[in-house]
């Protein structure tokens, strides 16, 4: 594996190269700001955002909001992944369960998202339950549909071969179907996490008193565009970090190690 990888990808230059578009973006933004001088309440300069970020970090507000958001995201995502994988296996393995559950899933998938908010505020009140529900509602469908596909794409001959070795149904599900479907399950989790962030921030606008979404919402009331952009930076950065230090290592030690996908070049 490692010997097949071109040496170039490991050099420092190649590792830092992905930062280039970000640098270009900040440079373009700064130049535009210096020339056009838009009002700070609409578009602050990059250094003002840096300062806002520094201030938020210094008085502990940023950490508090970030932890609150991350906690909800992880809770909602975990519940979404577990229910999505279990449901996906049920439907992927069982024709009858598929016939029974599929219309239900398609129906509710169509009305997923923020549509639920007015109803759910009445049912769950404003608080963690509401936010977690909205994240679950996003993650579940992505993980579910990917899992169903993954389960169906495991070559039957792999399951059959283990049957002839005396493997029980449960043994085969755990040792053949699950690892076989893993590339799709992980892909579902990856999109689930991405869309989960979006759902989280949207949900926090109304459903929470702390959190990054709430921080951005309050900043908007005071026309603090610097805090809004600082919040966006933190969200995007956390997204990148989670992908890189949570999902990528899992992929590296499973589906890449097994040769089910070619190793990604990382970000």
């Amino acid at each position: 594996m490692s010997d097949a990888k071109p040496v170039r990808t490991d050099t420092l230059t190649w590792k830092l190269l992905p930062a280039l578009p970000f640098v270009a973006l900040i440079a373009g933004w700064s130049i535009y700001w210096l020339i056009a001088r838009p009002p700070v309440g609409t578009l602050p300069p990059a250094w003002a955002v840096t300062e806002a970020l520094w201030q938020l970090a210094a008085d502990g507000e940023l950490l508090q909001n970030t932890l609150a958001s991350l906690g909800r995201l992880l809770l909602g995502t975990t519940v979404g992944v577990v229910t999505g994988v279990v449901g996906g296996f049920l439907v992927g393995l069982n024709r009858r369960a598929a016939d029974f559950l599929n219309p239900l899933v398609v129906f509710f998938n169509a009305i997923s998202g923020i549509v639920w908010l007015p109803l759910m505020i009445g049912w769950l009140g404003i608080g963690t339950a509401l936010v977690v529900f909205l994240i679950w509602n996003t993650v579940f469908f992505l993980v579910f549909q990917n899992t169903v596909l993954g389960v169906r794409l495991v070559p039957p001959v792999l399951e059959q071969s283990v049957e002839t070795l005396g493997g029980s149904r449960l043994h085969i599900i755990l040792n053949v179907t699950l690892p076989g479907a893993l590339p799709y399950i992980l892909s579902g989790i990856r999109s689930g996490l991405g869309f989960g962030w979006r759902a989280l921030i949207a949900a926090e606008l109304v459903g929470a008193t702390v959190g990054l979404g709430q921080m951005i919402f309050r900043a908007a009331e005071f026309h603090r565009a610097d805090i809004i952009i600082a919040g966006c930076l933190v969200i995007g950065l956390l997204g990148v970090l989670m992908d890189r230090y949570l999902l990528a290592p899992i992929e590296k030690h499973t589906i890449e190690r097994w040769g089910l996908v070619t190793p990604s070049r990382g970000i």
């Binding site: 070559p155 001959v157 792999l158 059959q160 071969s161 283990v162 040792n175 053949v176 690892p179 076989g180 499973t254 097994w258 040769g259 089910l260």
Partner: peptide, 8 residues
Amino acid sequence: QELAILPW
């Protein structure tokens, strides 16, 4: 006839 060992 087709390959049926487990890649994992």
